[in-house]
Amino acid sequence: MTDVDRVSGWAGVASVLLTNVATVGATLASPSFAWTGNALSDLGQPGTAVATPVTTLLFDGGLVLGGVVGLAFTYTLWMAGENAVERLAVLPFAVALVGMAGVGVFPSSRPLHAPAALTLYLGSMVAMAVYALGNVLAGARGRGAVTLGLVLAHVGVWWWWASGGSLTRGGLAIPEIVGAALFSAWVVWTAHWHLAGERAPTDGRVAAPG
């Protein structure tokens, strides 16, 4: 395994750690944030009751930094892909991370905030679903099935939220954090697969696409 392989693999893990630690840190630093009353984006919007300079720095900065760092993981996903479908998942994965950074760049009062958030969540679900299909085609059926289960759970959370009333009602942070947790779990799991699992290269390089 080359240094590039290691850096790319660990970039996926680092991206998850950066965004999640920063987000949770922002909720703890907020004077009045409530999971049942707020959206996570309230933490990054100056002027809201739950935001402070510390929460905006943590939340917005964590998303931007995590999104940029996570893009390095696309190298591993592409180079270690065993078929065209697995490699195709790189595109929505990269789009999702651009959306993640966009949520941090454009606070909730900005017109581009909602498109960035949709890009993050939809892109993450599409990336996972496409990669799962590629896994199945590559013979990793169990892994593909579990990943599809994560996607269905993500869709289910948003279906549950949408069926309960306005999408922007208080408590939006709940489906947001669940969706983020599902995507984060998949990224870490996939990074481990390529760093130390069955996909870990043993010949000094990432396995060439088949």
Rank of each mutant, 00 (worst) to 15 (best):
A39N: 05
P209H: 03
S108N: 11
W189N: 02
A94S: 13
G104C: 08
A181S: 15
L77D: 14
S184I: 02
A145Q: 09
G142M: 02
L150M: 06
H192R: 14
G67M: 10
L172K: 14
G25C: 08
A140K: 10
N20G: 13
A181Q: 13
G37W: 14
S108K: 12
G25D: 07
V103D: 00
A116D: 01
V98Q: 08
H192W: 14
V69C: 08
L40A: 07
P46L: 04
L65P: 06
L63D: 00
S124N: 01
V50G: 06
A208C: 03
E198C: 00
P107C: 08
P46S: 09
L167A: 12
A80W: 11
N83H: 12
A181K: 10
A145F: 06
S32F: 12
M79Q: 15
S109Y: 12
S124M: 14
G61K: 04
A185I: 10
A173D: 06
G62Y: 14
P115F: 13
P107T: 10
H194Q: 12
A180I: 02
A14R: 00
T23F: 02
W161L: 08
G44I: 10
G179T: 06
T190L: 11
V151Q: 03
V4W: 15
T2C: 05
A162W: 11
L40H: 05
L112D: 02
Y75W: 15
A14L: 12
R141Q: 09
G37H: 14
L133V: 15
L65Q: 04
R199F: 13
G44R: 07
A129L: 10
V69F: 05
A101C: 06
P92S: 06
L167W: 15
T55K: 03
R87K: 15
L167V: 11
A11R: 10
V188L: 07
L63I: 00
F33M: 03
A138G: 05
A114G: 09
W35R: 07
L18K: 00
V187W: 13
S166Y: 10
A181F: 05
L28Y: 02
A114F: 13
A153F: 08
V7S: 07
V95L: 11
G61C: 03
V85T: 14
A101Q: 04
V16Y: 08
L148H: 11
T2P: 00
D42Q: 01
L152E: 01
F93R: 03
M79N: 12
G104H: 12
V206Y: 14
H194R: 09
T76M: 09
A129H: 08
H192P: 00
L122K: 01
Q45G: 04
Q45T: 15
R6G: 03
